[in-house]
């Protein structure tokens, strides 16, 4: 076992030596939209504008609080930054049939997707929900955060504004 670990660690070190300081991109995983159509997550984009990827579940109270707070400001943010939110539900087959009725009941208007066996969640190394990523217009992940408390959306807005300034420069 020690030998195996040694090889793995050497492998990682070897690759680290080659490392360039590149930003992470979105891995290619197949999930579904609410019409049941399969979608490749590597194709997520927003016409060169920044976008948010947020993992949530119908039974996760902080996730619901986060989306309620974002709903209050989403229109304003879209006007200011052009941002788009991809909301990834990790509800499994116990509650995945409730996702669409739940969203409609809440009146949320984001781009919703279903990750019923958590394939995308695993590929993005998400441990807990809510977990939110902000990507720049090139699809590179520039910020991420786990958990949510009221007011947490303001940091996201600061990041998005920072991106706009960077792009203008």
């Amino acid at each position: 076992m020690k030998r195996i670990l040694l090889i793995i660690i050497s492998g990682i070190l070897l690759t680290s030596l080659h490392a360039q300081k590149a930003k992470s991109t979105i891995p290619s995983v197949t999930i579904r939209n609410l019409d049941g159509v399969q979608v490749n997550t590597a194709d997520f984009s927003n016409d060169g504008k920044p976008f948010i990827i947020s993992f949530w579940a119908t039974y996760c109270k902080p996730c619901v609080r986060e989306f309620n707070s974002l709903t209050d400001v989403y229109e304003e943010w879209q006007e200011e930054t052009g941002v788009k939110l991809f909301a990834i539900s990790i509800d499994d087959s116990r509650t995945s049939n409730n996702v669409l009725p739940f969203i409609n009941g809440k009146g949320w208007e984001f781009d919703f997707y279903l990750d019923v066996n958590s394939d995308f969640k695993r590929a993005m190394n998400v441990n807990l929900v809510p977990h939110t990523f902000i990507c720049n217009g090139k699809g590179e992940i520039i910020w991420q955060h786990t958990s949510f408390a009221e007011g947490g959306e303001m940091e996201m807005l600061e990041i998005l504004r920072g991106l706009l300034i960077e792009e203008k420069e």
């Binding site: 195996i4 090889i7 793995i8 050497s10 492998g11 990682i12 070897l14 690759t15 680290s16 080659h18 490392a19 360039q20 590149a22 992470s24 991109t25 891995p27 590929a123 190394n125 998400v126 441990n127």
Partner: peptide, 25 residues
């Protein structure tokens, strides 16, 4: 199998001299 994995990884680097992405949690 892990040796092979490491080898493949290293070979890929040798061929293209471009870094892939390492992720983890």
């Amino acid at each position: 199998s892990i040796c092979l994995l490491t080898l493949i990884t290293s070979t890929v680097f040798a061929q293209e001299q471009k870094m892939g992405e390492i992720r983890g949690d």
